[in-house]
């Protein structure tokens, strides 16, 4: 299973589903992380965590543990 956390800077993927629950799931949805949206890994913070991704024309930072809860479509 490929998650957002597996992307290297510069790589992109398509969101398949999110496995988070509760407030985090709500927050993901509100920030536009929905099925079918394209996300690009932009960069990794100096200490290796969190990461910054680009989607829907803006940049979002999230921790690696959170990025693992965003499952990407297989292939590509």
């Amino acid at each position: 299973m490929k998650t957002l956390n597996n992307l290297k800077p510069g790589q992109s993927g398509i969101v398949d589903r999110i496995t988070a629950e509760g407030a985090l799931k709500r927050h993901f949805l509100d920030m536009g992380i929905t099925k079918g949206v394209a996300v690009t890994m932009e960069r990794v913070a100096p200490f290796g965590d969190p990461v910054a991704v680009r989607l829907r024309g803006y940049s979002l930072s999230l921790r690696r543990a959170e990025a693992k809860k965003i499952v990407l479509e297989a292939g590509a």
């Binding site: 407030a23 985090l24 927050h27 920030m31 803006y58 940049s59 979002l60 930072s61 999230l62």
Partner: peptide, 12 residues
């Protein structure tokens, strides 16, 4: 309480 994590916009 579980923190809502660190999902933060990096604004323009």
């Amino acid at each position: 309480e579980v923190s809502s994590g660190f999902v933060l916009e990096l604004p323009t």
